[in-house]
Amino acid sequence: MIIIDKLAYSSRLRYKNPTLKAIFAVGTLLICVGARSSIVSVVTLAAMAGLTVLSSKISILRYLRLMLIPLGFMVLGTIAIVVNVAEAPMDLLSVPMGGKYLAVSHTSLNEGMRLVAVALASVSCLYFLTLTTSMLDILSVLQKLRCPKIMIELMMLIYRYIFVILDMANAITISQNCRLGNQDFMTELRSAGQMLAVLLVRSMKKSSALFDSMESRCYDGEIKVLNESYPVEIRDTIGVASFLLMMLAIAMFL
């Protein structure tokens, strides 16, 4: 998660208008899911992966590793679709099991492969967005979409404090390890428990200190802030529009 955050800030596409990036990613995602076609999926995957790897300081290997995370879930999910419990044996593979068959047909295998392709392509769309757009910019897009203020404010605070609390947790763990708090499994377990307990108390204190400091700046129940704005460039808009049209064409005519 931290790595994704770092990559998003160092991406070459970071200062592009976030709304445009969101339209690009989510638009492609919708076409891809709507079309459910292998060709559209492969084109999407290639385009998104290529764009992400080229624009971010991410190596292809690391990108593939990121892709592996959802792939595990997809494979598990697809097995249920590919493998059928049938009365009669099927054309590709059949394992008899107490009167019935655990069977795979050509159609179900094709269906499964297509599903994995669509899912991977969809993930690549979302990775494009998260690896080129900072959390804050995504929040500004959500704001434009009239997402409830309270949710935006919560996400903003949670995002900021993930890092503060993570720092605290790291510091506590290091100080525990310096005093042999990880010498065997039991001590490690106890250390982790104590760390979480301290973390809770400190987080409560931090939140109350934060509230005081916000009150000191005339906080009145609503967090009003200025967002950085990145202008929409015509060239990019044309690029996004023609890409989406092309995808739409592929989805409809191929």
């Binding site: 900072s134 959390m135 804050l136 903003m156 605070l157 995002y159 900021r160 890092f163 931090k206 200190a209 934060l210 005081d212 400091s213 916000m214 700046r217 005339c218 906080y219 009145d220 967090i223 009003k224 802030v225 200025l226 967002n227 950085e228």
Partner: peptide
């Protein structure tokens, strides 16, 4: 305990907008 936002601009603008 004071910086509540991850963005410098958001952070500095909070008080002045209040």
């Amino acid at each position: 305990n004071q910086l509540f936002s991850a963005s410098v601009t958001q952070e500095i603008s909070f008080g002045v907008l209040n």
